[in-house]
Each structure stands twice: as C-alpha cells, then as structure tokens.
C-alpha cells in the first residue's frame, strides 16, 4: 500500500508549488490513470512516489517505509519507466542479464511472453531499434520486474496502433493483487479500458480520485445528434458526429467511459460533476 500524506513540492524556494498538500492512498490490485493538463505535476508526482525527489513537505510511505530513504527493499519493489530514457548500446539479452538479478521477483517467462506479443526477439540490439521498439522492449522489462509499484510515464507514446492493443493486453496479464500500476498519459483513449481508478491533478492539487466503475455507474457518456441533447446534460462539446455529452445515469445502466470527455467535464463543470459522482 502507498500512503501519500500532505505532499508538497516546488522546484526552488522562490518557485510556486508544483504539488500542494496532496494526500492519497493507493491500494494494491489496481491500475491507476494519472491525468492532468501540462505542468500540473504528473511527472513530478512520479518522481516523488519513487523517491527520486525529496518533498518539501509531507511524505510518501510504501509499506510504512519512507521512499526517500531509498532502502534496498523499497527499490526492489519500485520500477519507473520515464517518458524519455537512454536505452543502453548493448543487446537486450545482455541488458536483462545485467539487471534482472537485482529484482528478486523478476519473471523471465513473463518477459519472454511480453516480447513475443510485441514481436521482438530477445537478442535484439537496443541501439539499432527505433524509439517505439525501444519503448516496447523496456516496457516488457518493466512488466517482468515483478515490482509492487510500477510507474509508466506516457507508455504508449511512440507505439504504433496495433502495439497499443498489445500494450493493454500485456499490462492486464501482468496485473495481480499485490501490484499497483500507475499510468500517466495524455493518450487517454489508449488506456481508458485498462484503468480501475483515475487520479486527476489540477492547479497542483488533487482534483479527483475514484474508481472508473463509480464514474460509469453515475454518469453516462454518449455522442448524440445536436438536436437530441438530453435536458439533464452536465457537459457537452461539439463533435464531428454531433455533440458529445455527459449526463447523469440515475438507473446505473452500463455505460462506456469516455475519459477525455470526463476530464473536460470535470475541468469545466467541477461542482456539477462532483455532485453527481457523490450522489
């Protein structure tokens, strides 16, 4: 379990807080989506969660240990795949041989399955790969480490369209009751069917945190002809096919989550959306 308590951080004493008084508990067995506009602190939160940055206030506790202590046990249980990384100029097989022994729960079979799904050979030379292929290889490694906390920053950036579906498949297959996966992304359509819970950041603070099941139980998302917009609509925006709308779902009917629409609705009509979510 990860406990974030009153987390505050700024890049310098005279700079504004990038994260302000954020408190949150992350439970294992869930895939979290971390959303927010540019500059709202998503990557900063990742660095704070992994102990790569020291907060100015508050703390992040993983299994009751402060992550900033960078203890061996904590480091063996966290893996972060940043948006930009330096792929080393060695073969992937060699990279695995050098790094896998440091992760006690590393699963070589899982790695083999992921690489096969992405159609990449194990002995591929990392320096000869395109950016998207490097990302696939490092994603496979990240999923195979078996760490209890996995942080993926924009994991689908650079992936081709078929690989995005493969990504969803492999992430689901690597999920278990002990693991927390947090995906930070602007490409919400790539991951919206994957997420169990959503964290939204706005103005350096936690704007919303909840289960995707709760959202779809209370709100409906649809694209309707412009003349047929429901009277109970909470939020609407024009669409090439008509109008995208968010409206209450009092009957709890099954509905498909549109994360982009939900994000926009929450940004524009936060009070209204939150009222229906809490109902």
């Amino acid at each position: 379990m990860i406990k974030i308590e009153n987390l505050t951080f700024a890049y310098g004493k005279k700079k504004p807080n990038v994260i302000e008084d954020l408190s949150l508990t992350l439970h294992p067995g869930a895939i979290y989506g971390l959303l927010g506009k540019n500059g709202t602190g998503k990557s900063t939160l990742f660095y704070l969660l992994s102990g790569l940055l020291f907060p100015d206030g508050g703390k992040v506790m993983m299994n009751d240990i402060n992550v900033t202590k960078r203890q061996l046990g904590t480091l063996q249980d966290i893996y972060i795949l940043p948006e930009e990384f330096d792929a080393p100029k060695i073969s992937f097989e060699k990279y695995v041989r050098l790094h896998a022994p440091l992760y006690p729960r590393f699963d070589h079979e899982q790695l083999g399955r992921c690489m096969a799904e992405f159609e990449l050979p194990m002995d591929v030379d990392l320096k000869s790969l395109s950016m998207g292929q490097k990302k696939k290889a490092m994603l496979c490694f990240a999923l195979a480490t078996g760490t209890r906390l996995l942080l993926l920053d924009e994991p689908t950036n650079g992936l081709d369209i078929p690989s995005k579906a493969v990504f969803r498949r492999v992430v689901t297959s690597c999920m278990n009751d002990e693991r927390i996966i947090i995906i930070s992304t602007h490409q919400v359509r790539d991951v919206e069917y994957l997420l169990d819970r959503v964290i939204l950041l706005k103005n350096s603070q936690l704007h919303y945190e909840g289960a995707t099941a709760d959202i779809t139980e209370r709100l409906s998302f649809a694209v309707v002809p412009t003349s047929d917009v429901p009277s109970t609509v909470i939020y609407q925006e024009p669409n090439l096919a008509g109008t995208s709308v968010v409206y209450p779902n009092p009957g709890g009917e099954e509905t498909v989550l549109n994360l982009e629409l939900f994000f926009n609705a929450l940004s524009v009509q936060p009070d209204l959306v939150e009222r229906y979510l809490k109902a």
């Binding site: 790569l52 960078r70 203890q71 480091l75 893996y79 972060i80 990384f85 330096d86 440091l102």
Partner: peptide
C-alpha cells in the same frame, strides 16, 4: 551527470 542517468542509477535496487 544527466537526468536519465540519475533515474537509472538512483532506481537500481542496491544500497547507497
């Protein structure tokens, strides 16, 4: 020396 190297080094599962 670089941000990417710092991420890699700091996150390696070994003691300081």
């Amino acid at each position: 020396s670089t941000k990417q190297k710092r991420v890699h080094q700091l996150m390696l599962p070994a003691t300081k």
